[in-house]
Design a protein around this nucleic acid. Structure first.
Length: 798
DNA sequence: GCGGACTGCTTACCT
DNA sequence: ACAGGTAAGCAGTCCGCG
């Protein structure tokens, strides 16, 4: 017997059973000779039982036959810090565990069961302290794991992106009918477009037919030693499509360790491969958008390429792909396909460092990490920390608990009604990571809540709402947050001393970004009804303190003679006297920080020359809507129609111009003229369709709507015409001339001819509302924007 | 029978 | 499918009107 050493990257862990039904962990190690699978047959699945009488329960468990003549392979009492009377029960395989966990409640003295629903492979990664996507040195003997160590090698990941173009004869492509026409594979080494029609394009690889094309693509994916296969919406389109075509054409769909596995994740699919990590850049981008790390109104690759990489590209419509294929002139489709592959790869490269950092911290593979929601990330992190600290993990809530939890909500952050109108010399201050810093400062955690110490009930951790948190014992959550925060500050310090272009910098920067994501997700998780560490009181205490602290800032500012203009949760907008500026604002923040507990920090965000807040229709000033301009002339627009996708470009652009003119040039008269000009063009029927499109996401199935708004009506009509739209589709529609209600007039843009729009609607319901709310603050009325108004009469001739 | 007021549903935004 | 706070449009209904 010889031991063998392997160097590579730990890609994944999964499990199977051997012939005797013993579970076996499989580790997938990517080496320069391809992905190797190594076994670990010593590790066994287990869960915990909490007993009122250890002896009695242990005895009963040892004898207990939970079906098919199976017994637990070991039963041992264990010590846990947060619970007593704990017994660890291990099994031959996960299937046995699943049967046993449903039966043990009837055994004597069993009070509860714990950690019975943690996936075996994920459990293994935690227990062994393994970090996927990190470089490893592995010792194996006949395929069995002897040892595994992490090394300092600089990992490089072999990423290949794939994108399909399919036939779509006047309807959405259907995998069991319509063939794949071409497939692009892109990697660092370049791109190849595989197809089976003639082309002189140099990237084209021409095969005999679809079958040969797919076989060649799969063979190349294997020989390229692909570690990460990247797609754009491959979870719902490319990989399921490829799988179905393989079945149809009787091709073995082999990526190296077999084919595509589709799993349902709520209403969405996820497509996984064995060993190879499937990274769906579309899912990744949606996550980044959810946490506010990227802001995109549309997620199609053209928009993504333009907005994120400043590389505009031409869209080739499905109908054009079809036409081109039928006519045999496919060069432009090949180019389009290649560009899609390349931008998909670029997206993956952009976000990979952060994903790798998260994989290491969350000890889960790239496939899971890149599809995880923030709550799943927090929960995963807490489970890892519970294991490290020898705590027992709380159970997931039952559906009935969730319903109960959903009934009681808690108050959120404080939002001040702004002073409407135009203001000058505005300083913006905000708290750095307000929620986590409150949790750290006041030791907020589910188990420190309402501790029994008399002195904690009145001390510094008594919340403004009356709940209190222990001052003696560090909380589980607050302690974790404190560690994360300290680590992040340490990394940020290191970053200052490293060359920004170095590899080390990008790794560390990705790590601090990952830590920030985790830091900011804990508060929401505390108030999330499905969470294991749910504590409505704790979440409520966080916001109660947040209200107290921001009000403290505003009060102190007013004492100084500044005007508290506006405030939202963690930010304070102050009007400073003309003669003072940034220096004084910073000094004020420093003064406040002196009075705040340790981890909390008020930061100077910026000083703005001018800003506008507007009045609501029903009176009162609108919150969460403002525009600021700094001393360099940079405009910041927040909350206005301009930043919303469900307003037409013509309204948004006009609003932006009006804001610019008012804030930068200070010329309200000119702003009104701009609005009138837009209205005139609309009336004349000259506004192009693309400026009239309103985007709205269809969030449900059509039949689940109680109220049929314009976007639902437009979707309904489109479905009757055979279009495929479902939940999640972002629809673009235009209000046309035909119909009575607005819904009747709404049609998806693709069915609307240039010039067919309801000018009156766009004037009255788009331009005027978007613009008048700004100009009203400067003394204008609606009539001033319309022909015949007192202002317009000055301009309407000549 | 009509128009304004109001409500409920819906979406997208802010921190 | 992490939280709450908010604006605002549109559809549909209510309400008052001899």
């Amino acid at each position: 017997m010889s031991t063998n050493k392997l160097y590579g990257t730990l890609l994944d862990v999964d499990y199977t059973n051997d012939q005797e039904q013993n579970s076996i962990i499989q580790l997938y190690i990517s080496t320069k000779n391809g992905i190797k699978s190594i076994k670990d047959s010593k590790y066994k699945p287990y869960f915990y039982i909490i007993s009122g009488d250890l002896k009695a329960t242990v005895k009963a468990l040892k004898d207990f036959d939970f079906g098919e003549n199976q017994k637990a392979i070991s039963v041992e009492p264990v010590e846990k810090k947060n619970v007593s009377g704990v017994i660890k029960v291990s099994f031959k395989n996960p299937q046995d565990l699943i049967r046993a966990r449903d039966l043990v409640k009837d055994l004597p003295e069993v009070l509860d069961k714990r950690e019975f629903d943690i996936r075996f492979s994920l459990r293994y990664l935690i227990d062994k302290g393994l970090k996927p996507m990190q470089p490893v040195e592995v010792e194996e003997e006949n395929g069995e794991l002897k040892s595994i160590h992490f090394t300092d090698d600089k990992p490089e990941y072999n990423m290949v992106s794939i994108d399909l173009e399919t036939y779509s004869p006047g309807r959405f492509s259907t995998a069991d009918k319509d063939p794949i026409l071409m497939i692009v594979l892109s990697s660092k080494k370049g791109s190849k477009v595989y197809t089976y029609k003639k082309s002189a394009m140099k990237e084209a690889v021409i095969l005999k037919d679809e079958k040969e094309m797919i076989e060649k693509v799969l063979a190349d994916i294997r020989t390229m030693n692909t570690e990460i296969l990247v797609t754009y919406n491959g979870d719902s389109f490319d990989l399921p499509y490829l799988k179905t075509r393989c079945e149809k054409l009787k091709i073995s769909c082999d990526f190296g360790f077999g084919g595509v596995k589709i799993t349902k994740k709520g209403i969405f699919n996820a497509a996984s491969l064995t060993g190879i990590q499937h990274l769906d850049a579309f899912q990744l981008l949606k996550f980044m958008a959810r946490i506010g790390a990227v802001s995109l109104l549309k997620f199609d690759l053209e928009n993504v390429s333009d907005k994120l990489f400043n590389k505009p590209k031409e869209k080739v419509a499905a109908s054009e792909i079809n036409r081109a294929w039928d006519s045999g002139k496919i060069d432009h489709v090949i180019k389009y396909n290649r560009e899609d592959g390349e931008i998909t790869l670029e997206l993956a490269e952009e976000f990979l460092p952060m994903q790798v950092a998260l994989c290491a911290m969350l000890q889960q593979n790239l496939f899971e990490t890149s599809r995880a929601t923030s709550s799943q990330m927090v929960e995963r992190l807490l489970m890892i920390k519970a294991f490290e600290k020898n705590h027992l993990v709380p159970n997931k809530p039952l559906e009935s608990d969730i319903t109960d939890r959903e009934e009681t909500t808690f108050k959120g952050g404080f939002v001040k009604e702004p002073l409407p109108g135009l203001h000058e010399n505005i300083a913006v201050l905000d708290f750095r990571s307000l929620h986590p810093s409150i949790m750290i400062a006041h030791n907020i955690s589910p188990e420190t809540l309402k501790c029994n110490h008399q002195k904690c009930k009145t001390g510094k951790n008594l919340s403004p709402d009356g709940d209190w948190f222990c001052m003696e014992k560090k909380g589980f959550l607050s302690g974790i947050l404190e560690d994360i925060l300290a680590k992040r500050i340490e990394i940020k310090k290191q970053l200052k001393e490293i060359d920004k272009k170095s590899h080390e910098y990008s790794v560390l920067n990705a790590r601090q970004h990952a830590l920030k994501i985790l830091l900011n997700s804990h508060y929401g998780y505390l108030g999330y009804p499905r969470s294991r560490w749910y504590s409505r009181e704790s979440a409520g205490a966080v916001t109660a303190w947040s209200r107290k602290y921001i009000n403290f800032v505003n009060d102190e500012a007013e004492k100084k003679g500044y005007i508290s203009l506006y405030s939202d949760t963690d930010s304070s907008f102050l009007i400073l006297p003309k003669e003072i500026g940034e220096k004084e604002a910073r000094a004020f923040a420093a003064e406040i920080n002196e009075k705040l507990p340790g981890a909390m920090e008020l930061e100077f965000e910026g000083l703005f020359k001018r800003g506008i807040f507007v009045t609501k229709k029903e009176g009162g000033a609108a919150k969460k809507k403002y525009a600021l301009v700094d001393f360099e002339g940079n405009l910041k627009i927040v909350g206005f129609e301009y930043v919303r996708r469900d307003w037409s470009a013509v309204a948004k652009n006009t609003q932006k111009k009006v804001l610019e003119t008012v804030l930068i040039e200070g010329d309200a008269k000119k702003a009104a003229a701009i609005a009138r000009e837009t209205i005139k063009k609309l009336k004349e029927g000259k506004t192009p369709k693309k400026d009239l499109v309103i985007m709205t996401m269809l969030k449900r199935k059509i039949e689940n709507y109680d109220s049929i708004g314009p976007h639902v009506a437009a979707a309904k009509k489109a479905i009757e015409r055979g279009k495929d739209v479902g939940p999640g589709t972002i629809l673009g529609f235009v209000i046309t001339k035909t119909g009575k209600s607005i819904s009747e007039k709404a049609e998806l843009e693709e069915y609307v001819a240039e010039g067919n729009y309801d000018a009156n609607y766009y004037i009255e319901n788009q331009i005027i509302p978007a613009v008048i709310k700004i100009l009203r603050e400067l003394g204008y009325s609606e009539d001033d924007l319309k022909e015949g108004g007192k202002q317009s009469s000055l301009f309407s001739f000549g």
